[in-house]
Design a protein around this nucleic acid. Sequence first.
DNA 1: TATATATTTAACTAATAGGTTAATTAACAC
DNA 2: GTGTTAATTAACCTATTAGTTAAATATATA
Lengths: 113, 113
Amino acid sequence: MTQDQLSTTFHALADPTRRAILASLTTGEKTVSDLAEPFDMTMPAITKHLKVLEKAKLIERSKQAQYRPCHLNPEPLKDIDKWMEQYRKFWEASFDRLDDYLQQLQTKDKDDE
Amino acid sequence: MTQDQLSTTFHALADPTRRAILASLTTGEKTVSDLAEPFDMTMPAITKHLKVLEKAKLIERSKQAQYRPCHLNPEPLKDIDKWMEQYRKFWEASFDRLDDYLQQLQTKDKDDE
DNA sequence: TATATATTTAACTAATAGGTTAATTAACAC
DNA sequence: GTGTTAATTAACCTATTAGTTAAATATATA
């Protein structure tokens, strides 16, 4: 299956190493070695994680001499935020109000018939 | 690796079928057959998707006769929303608005105390 | 009790993920 | 040129994923 963009993004985020890399990039551009430093992991493993993040468009890369600096691209996160919108009411309301809301939905269903 | 909760949640969301199931549950409790109906997929496949969602605590289940109705649990989504917080400033754009944003955060922090 | 319906479990398969080591490429410095 | 540093690619391994079909379980109903 050719993955949809949202699935690709969620998948990229479903790994603690990749999330830590993203967090590390919030303070600015970093080289691969910089990013690899905190992890008990070989460089090729980091390269692969970066490829996953790049395919998800969560990072972008450039060239500076023998370095391949990475920087954060927040767009896909924004898309996730938009996706979350439909669920916010489920935790932003008190339980009473959620109950009301569901009640309302059911009533609405009946109206539709 | 025993996955951390956030990884488990992101992984559960990294599949369009599972996201569609969640969306379907926004209108209220549904049986497994109800949930399976829109998909060109066998029941055991749906059962597995539900297990993934259940382990991620995105759904909860009960028993009614031979049915095993599912309902949405928004908590893990709330956790993702919290995780996103550190990235919002990257798309909430202009410095003015970033200022507003930081102001807002401070106010929120005070509310927590 | 027998049968139908709802759902899960078991056993299997093919593809993907996430890591490794060893070899390779690219750019710099001497 | 030679050597060094930065990063990627290739080849491999093991575990997990997402699906299948067939069998089993649980409950309701005739």
